[in-house]
Computed example of a mutant assay.
Amino acid sequence: MARKPRVWFPSAVYHITKRGNRRSALFYDKQDRLTYLSMFEEARTFFPCILHSYCLMTNHIHLQLETIEHHPQHIMKMLNSRYAVYFNRRHSYEGHLFQGRYRAELILSTDYFLKVSKYIHLNPVEANIVKSPEIYDWSSYNAYISSQDNPHISTSRTLSYFPEPATEKYRAYVEGKNTLIH
């Protein structure tokens, strides 16, 4: 039976997830994570897109990705295939790194857009890795709540939904202290 084609149109936004094969690790250390982010940037030079948020967990990834002119399949194919080759070479492995096809949920509303951003940033907290999302080094959260620069993401759309001071309001939204958005 053929796979159901994914819905795509220019400027479509997705919550993309990808898991390690049999839930095995995708990242062993800082170098693996930095390489993944570097490879994302390389893929973006071929297939421009906007990354609104991300979280690199040990055995899976979350990307909140907005397309521009290319279907996300092109971005994900380049990124995942290159990263799998790198990972297998570096760690002397063979075979599949990723489990099946990447998952891409289309985001069609502002409410869902913000819920996905919150979910992604709280993922390490929910997994009991950290007590607070700003402690986790491998997500885009700190770019939202501090002056820390993160060249991989754009915070402007997400923060535009919050009244000033938007960074404080976003933090309150994510950390459950306030759900007021504009």
Rank of each mutant, 00 (worst) to 15 (best):
Y28W: 10
Y28H: 13
D29Y: 10
D29A: 10
D29I: 11
K30P: 07
R33V: 07
R33S: 08
L34H: 13
L34E: 15
T35E: 13
T35F: 08
T35A: 14
Y36G: 00
Y36P: 01
Y36C: 01
L37M: 15
L37C: 13
M39E: 07
M39Y: 13
M39G: 03
M39H: 04
F40Q: 02
F40Y: 15
E42K: 14
R44N: 12
R44Y: 06
F46D: 12
F47G: 04
P48D: 08
C49K: 04
I50A: 02
L51K: 00
L51T: 02
S53A: 15
S53C: 14
L56M: 11
L56R: 03
T58D: 08
N59W: 00
H60A: 06
H60Q: 04
I61Y: 00
H62I: 07
H62G: 07
H62M: 13
L63C: 05
Q64W: 06
L65V: 11
L65E: 04
L65T: 04
T67H: 06
I68Q: 14
I68C: 05
I68H: 10
E69V: 12
E69W: 09
E69R: 12
H70D: 14
H70S: 12
H71I: 07
P72N: 10
Q73C: 11
Q73H: 13
I75V: 11
M76N: 04
K77D: 05
M78G: 06
L79I: 04
L79C: 04
